[in-house]
Write a protein that binds this DNA or RNA. Structure first.
Lengths: 241, 241
DNA sequence: CCCCAAGTTTGCTGAAGAACAAAGACCAAC
DNA sequence: GTTGGTCTTTGTTCTTCAGCAAACTTGGGG
């Protein structure tokens, strides 16, 4: 993690290049980025401590600088569903972008996270005055919508094994790190988590993973998954219909 | 249907009040609405003929004036999933709003539909120059996202009976008409359609509906459903977890 | 170093619902 | 009125996967 060793204070003097390569800010000049940074509140979150919770007033919007965030919804029955994962460089909590005034889900850091945030009241300022910010933000909304849509289709048409395989593939494509012998998911993830992403049980996920390990598709240990044969997993995820 | 008896030509001289009560245009004055109407292409679609198809270049965006539209996605395996229904007064095909240049799904009229459409190139003009248009459009995006999210959670956590019940309830809330003895879904809908909305089979939906009819929750005939005890259906939809 | 909590594996059983099958009902067109 | 296509119902069988239960593994904290 880039910033793990740095104190939060350092952000105050951080070079404007910090945001310069992140899509929503890519088109901006240094003075503009400086202005944006001056309005930002940097904050560190430990794994497990919610950044914001479903239903609360959306007072701020966020940018994840480092770490991974899990966006979850909890049903009345206590079931948890993981809606999506946020990776470094992405905006989140942007309820304002879609005309909402409460957060639709809860954001939980999976590991130590470093985030910037701004008051929601700044949203219209950003979209109106910073070139490309609105466009990029809506593109993010579009991508998430597309992903949700795909998952909906999967849930409706695919078997558990295919769904779990796709979830794993999605994770390595969004947040994979090349390692010797394959690609690993670069944040801690449990069978329970995978089952919350796919609408199944940890038991079933465990059985599937064991099976995959036996035929050489993955290698996993506690809270840790390496895909050793991504192609094989793709093939499996497309089986049967 | 309001316009069923009218020719399309009449739109050319339609009063500006036509759009005045529709949310995205609510804040506009008559000259502005006139300008928008002048850019619009009105068109009638018969049930079953696609307005646009998944994957095609998003050359226009649409407003549904009358009728009902079903937005579907088709898998490689040929399975169909109904993503949502559009009712009169709603924008659709607004890929531009979320930074896409192709349509993410196919739009099929369920009954005879009357739509207005504009070239996508006008999108930035509308959002920039017409007060409230952007805000309302993004609110629509937000609502659809919320609905999809809810369905995702349902698919992951609920049983078939609960899912189907909720689908029916959602339909009557979005597109219900009060009739003697209950609320009816005011467009034709088959068991197959309901199963495409809930990820089950027409057989299972048929069994469920028969059961519900027996205990007095609904009354249905060919392509036609009346909910006679909405409260009972809500109770049922919340059962078990 | 040991303990404990969190995470994982595995076996067994049963229920939900899909798949297969076939007949019946309704509607529109001829 | 007849015919054919679409939609619906109902029965039976079979698969998948959730539920329950219990043991095992792992790694961090005291």
């Amino acid at each position: 993690m880039f910033f793990s060793k740095l104190g939060v204070g350092i952000l105050r003097k951080l070079d404007e290049s910090l945001l310069g390569h992140i899509p929503p800010f890519r088109k901006l000049g240094r003075p503009e980025i400086r202005a944006i940074l001056d309005l930002a509140e940097p904050k560190r979150f430990a794994a497990g401590s919610a950044v914001f919770e479903e239903g609360l007033a959306a007072e701020r919007f966020y940018l994840l600088l480092d770490g991974h965030i899990r966006v979850i919804r909890t049903t009345e029955g206590g079931d948890q569903v993981i809606a999506l994962h946020i990776v470094a460089g992405q905006l989140f909590g942007i309820a304002a972008a879609i005309g909402r005034d409460t957060y639709p889900a809860t954001a939980i850091p999976v590991d130590d996270c470093l985030v910037l945030s701004w008051p929601t009241s700044q949203w219209s300022n950003f979209t109106a005055n910073y070139d490309g910010f609105a466009t990029e933000s809506y593109k993010v909304v579009g991508e998430r919508m597309g992903e949700m849509n795909n998952r909906l289709v999967e849930m409706a048409t695919q078997q558990v094994e295919q769904r779990v395989a796709r979830a794993v593939l999605r994770l390595i494509s969004q947040s994979g790190r090349k390692v010797a012998g394959g690609i690993e998911i670069d944040f801690p993830i449990t069978r329970q988590n995978l089952s919350d992403m796919t609408g199944t049980t940890l038991h079933t996920v465990s059985r599937l993973m064991s099976g995959w390990e036996k035929i050489g598709l993955v290698k996993s240990s506690r809270r840790h998954i390496v895909v050793t044969d991504a192609h094989g997993l793709v093939v499996l995820s497309e089986r049967s219909g």
